[in-house]
Amino acid sequence: MKVSNETKIGLLTVIAITILILGYSYLKGNDIFSGSDKFYAIYNSVEGLSVSKPVLVNGFQIGRVSKMELQPDGRTIVEFKVEPKYKVPNNTLAKLESADLLGSKVIVFEMGNSKVYAESDDTLKADVQGSLAESLQPIQKKAEDLITKMDSSLAAINKILNPQFQKNIDRSFLSIANSLQTLEGTTKKIDNLVGSQTVRINGIMANAEDVSGNLKTSTSHLDAIATNFETFSNDLSHSNIKQTMDNANKAVADLQASISKINNGHGSLGLLMNDDKLYKNLTDASDNMNKLLIDLKAHPKRYVHFSVFGGKKD
């Protein structure tokens, strides 16, 4: 049987239209050849969301947006088609999240912990997360402020880095280089000086070591002296110092009383020191005694008479 060209063209046209319809349905999120579970969520705003956008769980696609319908109160009912092999707990949260910086949105299922699974045509809890651009607005503002400050800083740096300033910088670096060269020469001189004085330095170190040894010996003597002093201090602390001080104070008080009596003319010593008449009498008596002794030596017979045979007394 021969098929005419018109029949062939008609069959190709039907096949093409069928493929077109199926592709269009697939792009709209309608899966014709396999059954899918339908879930719904109601959002106040679905900006950036469109039909056929994916439904994700931790970044893995389990379905897609199949339908969106605006309600009289301004909210939007979104229908999701999820493959039946994926079970969705009934307390799952359907979050509307940003997919990129351009504002495109996707649905992300935040799986609940319920042991009861949602059935097809159930409505899930909805949540809207701020767009990525909105979340980056504070960072953008800070970045703009930082760029403004950087512009001001760069302008100030450009103002500072004028030709005169650059000349001064070059001059400063030249001075630093000269200073480093001078320092290098001084270091070499110091090295040479230290090398030539190595013997003396060794001698000084040896003397210092001897002094350290002598100091160590002196330290032992000082320890002995400190021990003796401590012993003396202990003996002194156990001695009757209070009684000795009381006796000394009493002796000083008696001495002061005696000196007071002498100054006031009491007693022989006080009269001798304060009475001129007594002093004169004692002086006269001393002179007479001296005269008597002189006369006695000169004329002993006037005062002493003796006879061997008992002669007559004058």
Rank of each mutant, 00 (worst) to 15 (best):
V108Q: 06
G29V: 02
L132P: 02
V194G: 01
Q166H: 08
K81N: 10
K67Q: 11
A208I: 13
N263K: 10
V106G: 02
G265A: 03
G103A: 02
L27M: 14
K159R: 13
L154S: 12
D223A: 14
D284I: 13
V14Y: 05
Q181D: 13
A41W: 00
N58H: 05
L154A: 09
K297E: 12
K28V: 03
L272C: 01
K81V: 08
L11R: 12
P138R: 10
N91K: 07
I139Q: 14
S4H: 12
I262R: 00
A206Q: 09
A94G: 02
V252D: 13
Y86R: 06
P72V: 00
P300D: 11
L282D: 05
G48A: 12
L193A: 12
I241T: 14
V116E: 04
N178H: 14
I32F: 14
M111Q: 07
L49W: 03
I169Y: 11
S36G: 07
A248Y: 10
S104R: 13
T186E: 14
V304K: 12
Y43S: 04
R200L: 15
E69M: 03
S218Q: 13
E97G: 03
L278K: 09
I139F: 05
T13R: 15
G310L: 07
N281F: 10
G195V: 01
N207Q: 15
F309Q: 10
A143Y: 08
G267Q: 03
D295Y: 05
Y303V: 04
S220T: 11
L293W: 04
D246P: 02
S218G: 06
N5V: 09
S260R: 07
A143Q: 07
V252T: 12
S175E: 15
S307H: 06
K2P: 05
L174E: 15
L255H: 09
T92I: 07
T244A: 08
K95Q: 06
A226H: 13
S98E: 08
D295F: 07
K85A: 08
L146Y: 06
S307P: 01
V194Q: 07
R75L: 05
R64S: 09
A177L: 15
K67R: 11
P72I: 03
G23V: 14
I262E: 02
K250E: 03
T182W: 06
N91Y: 04
K81I: 06
T182P: 01
N288P: 00
Q166V: 11
S34P: 00
M68K: 02
D170N: 14
K277I: 12
K95S: 14
P300L: 11
L255R: 11
T198I: 03
L56Q: 09
I32L: 13
M111V: 08
E6N: 11
L269I: 13
K189I: 06
D287Y: 14
D100F: 03
I62W: 00
S120N: 09
N214T: 09
G63F: 00
S114M: 04
G48M: 08
E184C: 05
A156R: 15
L11V: 13
Y24C: 11
P89D: 00
M205N: 14
F80M: 12
A156F: 10
V88H: 00
R171F: 01
K105T: 03
E110M: 08
Q71N: 11
M273F: 05
G265H: 02
A133W: 03
M245D: 10
E230S: 15
K189T: 10
M273D: 05
N288C: 00
A251W: 04
N263H: 06
G35H: 10
K115L: 10
A41Q: 00
L96I: 03
H238F: 03
L20S: 13
F165N: 07
P84E: 07
